[in-house]
Amino acid sequence: MSESFLPVLAGHAEGTEVAAPSTPRNIPYRDGTPNPSAEALRARFGEAVQRVDVVWDETTVFVDRARVAEIVQWLHDDPSQRYDYLSDVTAVEYRDVDRPIEVVWHLRSLPYRRFLRLKTLLYKGQPLVVPSVWAIYKSADWMERECYDMFGIRFDGHPDLRRILMWEQYKEGFPLRKDFPLRGRFSRSEQLRQILALNPEAKYSMEELSVLDAFDELSLEQRQRLRAGEKVGE
């Protein structure tokens, strides 16, 4: 290791003395201390922060759906917060059909060693759209795609929102929704028939790669060749 190299240390924000963390013991159920960021969010965004919940010492902040990207951007940039690490993006649908779907972001502030859960509510019957945080965290890329794949929640602003785990032509819907049966909507033979009917080789075409951002600008003849599933590069 050379002299000039300085590793980035977690828990070492400038001007703060953060005590060495220890394993939490006897975690209270409801009356834990909330994360200081929750108060800061309330002071900064006021109405957009709908509710703050502390369960098992984990702070959950319910925020306004329209302002998610703005709030996350502030949490990421503000020198007193510095939530620079996005742990997870996911969603929760409850068994109670009337309860709204919750989209959940788990954020970590490495310099301050904080953990914050952001939630926003998507009411049933309304379009399932939330702002994407891809522009702030690149790690959101696949996690948002997965969330779209499993729940059908669209992330507004995501550059390439496609199915990621299930195949593109999957017809049965969004598996983690509560109205989706455990064994799928179709019978097993129908599921098998559908997937075997897909020609795997056709998926090696340029078209699927989305390299062709300007597909429409190609000559007609080129487009036809690609549509016919031509494998480029052989």
Partner: peptide, 14 residues
């Protein structure tokens, strides 16, 4: 070069 280890920064199991 980022010394982030869950065992150190958000410890569990002592």
């Amino acid at each position: 070069g980022v010394a982030y280890d869950v065992r150190k920064d958000f410890p569990y199991l002592d």
